[in-house]
Computed example of a mutant assay.
Amino acid sequence: MKKVDSDLFGICPFVTSQKVLQGKWAILVLHELSEGTKRFNELERAIKITHASLSSQLKYLEREGIVSRTVYPEVPPRVEYSLTAIGRQFRPVLASIEAWGNSYIEYLHANR
């Protein structure tokens, strides 16, 4: 098998997608944000993720242009996260992952 080189980022759609979606929590974060804008604590509770892991994943997705972070000048500061335009284009992929996941769960139940 040919080794997939990281030089293919930005060229090969599979390598590019895999790089952007790296991280244990990326798809779950995107799923939560696909339902609408959320605050940090809402995401933390919904995903049951540590503060450090969520912070790291959100920073990465923000750097990649998938997630937008909005800070409101209030005391205490309010920060909200949402999908960017390119992030919202991932919604049909999430729906496909959900459909496949449900089919696979049915398969597991039938074959175990």
Score class of each variant (00 low, 15 high):
residue 13 P to M: 00
residue 69 R to E: 11
residue 90 F to N: 05
residue 64 E to M: 09
residue 57 Q to S: 02
residue 76 P to E: 10
residue 49 I to A: 00
residue 25 W to A: 05
residue 72 Y to P: 13
residue 37 T to F: 05
residue 9 F to W: 07
residue 108 L to D: 01
residue 61 L to V: 04
residue 65 G to N: 06
residue 50 T to W: 11
residue 83 L to V: 04
residue 77 P to R: 14
residue 10 G to P: 01
residue 70 T to A: 14
residue 57 Q to D: 05
residue 7 D to P: 08
residue 105 I to H: 05
residue 15 V to T: 01
residue 44 E to R: 05
residue 86 I to A: 11
residue 45 R to E: 06
residue 108 L to N: 02
residue 38 K to V: 02
residue 80 E to Y: 15
residue 13 P to V: 06
residue 41 N to W: 00
residue 20 V to C: 02
residue 21 L to Q: 00
residue 36 G to C: 02
residue 61 L to I: 02
residue 43 L to E: 03
residue 48 K to S: 08
residue 28 L to N: 06
residue 2 K to D: 10
residue 111 N to A: 06
residue 110 A to V: 07
residue 21 L to V: 01
residue 109 H to I: 08
residue 57 Q to T: 10
residue 104 Y to S: 09
residue 49 I to G: 03
residue 54 L to P: 00
residue 20 V to W: 03
residue 24 K to R: 11
residue 27 I to L: 12
residue 64 E to V: 05
residue 69 R to I: 10
residue 79 V to R: 07
residue 83 L to S: 12
residue 52 A to Q: 08
residue 49 I to K: 04
residue 73 P to Y: 15
residue 20 V to K: 07
residue 97 I to A: 09
residue 77 P to W: 09
residue 4 V to R: 04
residue 53 S to P: 00
residue 71 V to K: 13
residue 108 L to F: 04
residue 21 L to A: 00
residue 78 R to I: 15
residue 78 R to W: 05
residue 69 R to G: 13
residue 85 A to K: 12
residue 6 S to V: 04
residue 109 H to W: 10
residue 94 L to G: 03
residue 3 K to W: 02
residue 41 N to L: 08
residue 105 I to K: 14
residue 97 I to N: 05
residue 86 I to N: 06
residue 98 E to C: 14
residue 15 V to P: 00
residue 61 L to F: 00
residue 51 H to G: 00
residue 87 G to W: 08
residue 98 E to F: 07
residue 71 V to S: 11
residue 80 E to H: 09
residue 26 A to S: 14
residue 29 V to Y: 01
residue 102 N to R: 13
residue 57 Q to E: 07
residue 8 L to K: 05
residue 105 I to P: 03
residue 88 R to L: 13
residue 33 L to A: 11
residue 66 I to Y: 11
residue 97 I to W: 06
residue 18 Q to F: 05
residue 2 K to N: 10
residue 14 F to S: 01
residue 77 P to L: 13
residue 76 P to G: 14
residue 31 H to I: 07
residue 106 E to L: 09
residue 38 K to A: 04
residue 86 I to S: 15
residue 44 E to S: 05
residue 110 A to P: 01
residue 27 I to V: 15
residue 44 E to W: 02
residue 19 K to R: 09
residue 26 A to R: 11
residue 76 P to A: 08
residue 38 K to Y: 00
residue 55 S to T: 10
residue 10 G to E: 01
residue 3 K to A: 13
residue 32 E to Q: 10
residue 107 Y to T: 15
residue 20 V to S: 06
residue 27 I to M: 05
residue 63 R to S: 10
residue 6 S to D: 13
residue 33 L to R: 06
residue 75 V to S: 15
residue 103 S to I: 02
residue 89 Q to F: 15
residue 35 E to D: 04
residue 92 P to D: 12
residue 102 N to S: 07
residue 60 Y to W: 06
